[in-house]
Design a protein around this nucleic acid. Structure first.
Lengths: 154, 154
DNA sequence: ATAATATGAAGGTCAAAGATGGTCAAGATG
DNA sequence: CATCTTGACCATCTTTGACCTTCATATTAT
């Protein structure tokens, strides 16, 4: 059984593509369309359209309220530098690192195979050891690999 | 009476054959079909679809979860499989891992950029932490990344 | 006319429930 | 003894619902 969240994700993405990177809709309307709880829309936005995945969400409550999803536009090298110097920091979760890798793949900074290689090295069960240290090691590895990407970039 | 595990193994293999080397299913569904404990599916996967038999398993939990069995393309790449299953072992030094990566690059199995990415993640100063554990973690990471290479081959 | 207030229409949060799969050790089998 | 089978307990991801906040507009009071 396909996940509703995935279906909603695809739906939103196709609309974004059609509308040049920005989309506005009403949460309740979308929930009604998919016959789900309105909060499920928030779940999809939080898990599939996060900053690490390259999106930004704005919204307004009250009458005439809306949700706006904006696909962020980035400069490749700058973004990699931002990741290495700011975003990743001293520790990072498996999920966040995966989101980041998926994001730079979708933007064409790395290809599918490179993404698979990088992701493989960042998995919890691969790094092993206690949880708190894991994030620290993962952050180091991810940063080092992204620097390697930068270095071998055009 | 034939062992159930063998029957399940054959069943999965026939499905893989029909679907060009990759199969996705739900663990509980399969268990129900064979009227066995769900964990028996894991047993079959662990014993019959292990890495040294040329398979790779992926899965996801939660609603809409699944198990995916991927038959690796080993005819061309059995050198990688040898590395993963035998050569690398449970611990490996930075130098040895670097040699391996250089070697598979020279064989044309990976390109320069991929080699740079993989090497970056294996450096002592990147992994950090105490020396003895470092080698263990490095071995895990290297193996996982090589499996990723295998997976994206052919 | 202006300011204060009430009302209804959005969207947000969070925790509980539901849906999967994973692990491990004990027991069964051959 | 080695291998297989099962079940109890755990981890992760999704879906839902109760309750909260914000905003625009209509209504009321001064």
């Amino acid at each position: 059984m396909a996940r509703l969240s995935d279906i909603i994700e695809d739906f939103i993405k196709s609309l974004i593509k059609q509308s040049e990177g920005e989309l506005e809709f009403q949460r309740n309307e979308l929930a009604e369309y998919f016959e789900c709880a309105p909060s499920q829309i928030n779940y999809v936005l939080a898990t599939r359209f996060s900053l690490d995945r390259g999106y930004h969400i704005e919204s307004r409550r009250g009458g005439g309220g809306f949700v706006r999803v904006i696909q962020l536009d980035i400069d490749e090298d700058d973004y990699l530098l931002y990741l290495v110097n700011q975003r990743i920091g001293t520790t990072i979760s498996q999920q966040a690192s995966k989101d980041i890798v998926t994001n730079i793949m979708e933007r064409g900074i790395i290809n599918e195979r490179e993404a698979a290689i990088i992701e493989a090295g960042l998995m919890d069960k691969v790094i092993g050891i206690p949880t708190n240290l894991r994030g620290v090691i993962r952050a180091n590895i991810l940063k080092a690999m992204l620097v390697a990407v930068l270095k071998t970039q055009g």
